[in-house]
Design a protein around this nucleic acid. Structure first.
Lengths: 222, 222
DNA sequence: CCACCATTCAATCGAGTTCTTGATTACTCG
DNA sequence: CGAGTAATCAAGAACTCGATTGAATGGTGG
């Protein structure tokens, strides 16, 4: 095998990973799976695709070795093949967000001006948590919290936020996090907490970013 | 704009980056540009593509904001749009290498069994360099060395290696590095140095990985 | 200002992708 | 065993992508 042939074959394989990330729907599937494993049906519902189409995309991802599946009774559960895949997805998304002005424009027009709710970054949160200055809440759905969450965080899904507000401290800052930078849950939580008179900020990034940064994650026993 | 529409549009833009990485030839172009900027003609020659085809791929990359170009006289020079792009490429390549057994097979069959030449990783090199135990040589072509190299490394292109062997210390280990994990230059250098009776190992990864790790890089003034 | 050269553009063809629809498989539960 | 359900498979229509060819552009140097 000569050099040219070797390179062609290796780059061909590397490009398979790129191909897997080349479809918007597959990117979305990976982002969802970065939270926790899911069934095909759930993913189809969440992405608005037909079942068959969802299944097809998942098989492309499996072909690229980015996801794995496990059958349990009637349901097939898909999950990321390794945490490195989540980190890769975040890297692609971050490069896109950094370089592509159109994404910036879209985020602004959808989230409104986010500048009011200043976000805290992960290293800052770690420091302030050590000093006991903050309370961390996870506003994702309970099953995502159960699969993995920031150590010390309390599960407060948006649906029960209003009932829980009274139990949150008014003398400390509440830091809310959710799925990632394009997830609105934390913004919504911060907005509501502020309306209730608490000090609240969102965390830059969500659970996948936290995990990718190598910071400690806990999960509930099944 | 509703949530579904927002997601579709954002993922669409993110997938553009994936698309850019979805062709073997474009992956190769990015890897080459991770070393230093190049003209279209040089890239066409290096990849074995026609000029028009090379130009077309470069424009796809520019469309995804991964590369930039600059015209100087007759020649157009392309370069990565940001170091983050090099890091992204490395991340994609590493995930591919980790998950895809076929790549492992290809590397083995092309490099032969590499296990004889134990490689040193970057943090280990930094330690041993501080203790003065090693000499670092850069075996890439001189223009790539000029564009960026490991601080303290000496430029020893393979073409002049044999003449330079006599000037390398026999009481310290020589660490050779080149373009990256799929580059054969460092292996070849290590092999020849060992035949000459020196202690030699290669560095895990090449210059782009070194830079991506945030380790110090120097460049010659133009 | 003309000949030349690096690069890009435009048009084309074959190959590959995406999504849909309807059939099929594999498993569970009554 | 047989009805019901989650998921996959198979095949086709519309679309996109990749490489080639030949022409066009824009800058250089005689």
């Amino acid at each position: 095998m000569n050099k040219r042939e070797f390179k062609d074959r290796v780059y061909e394989r590397v490009a398979l990973v790129g191909k897997a990330l080349a479809s918007p729907k597959r990117v979305e599937l990976i982002e969802l799976l970065a939270q926790t494993e899911r069934t095909v049906e759930w993913l189809a519902l969440a992405t608005g695709m037909s079942l068959a189409n969802t299944s097809q995309h998942l098989q492309v991802l499996r072909g690229a070795q980015l996801v794995e599946s496990r059958k349990e009774g009637l349901y097939v559960h898909y999950r990321l093949a390794s945490p490195a895949v989540g980190a890769l997805h975040a890297a692609v998304r971050d490069v896109a967000a950094e370089r592509d002005a159109e994404i910036d424009r879209l985020v602004r027009s959808y989230f409104g001006d986010r500048s009011g709710l200043d976000a805290v970054d992960m290293s800052e949160l770690v420091e302030r948590a050590e000093r006991g200055e903050v309370v961390v809440i996870d506003v994702r759905p309970p099953e995502e919290f159960a699969a993995a969450h920031v150590v010390g965080a309390r599960s407060v899904p948006l649906s029960i936020l209003d009932e829980v507000v009274a139990t949150l401290p008014r003398d400390r800052t509440v830091v809310a996090y959710c799925r990632g930078p394009f997830c609105v849950l934390a913004d919504e939580a911060v907005k509501r907490l502020r309306e209730a008179g608490l000090r609240a900020v969102r965390l830059h990034g969500g659970l996948p970013e936290w995990r990718a940064a190598g910071l400690p994650v806990a999960s509930d026993a099944a």
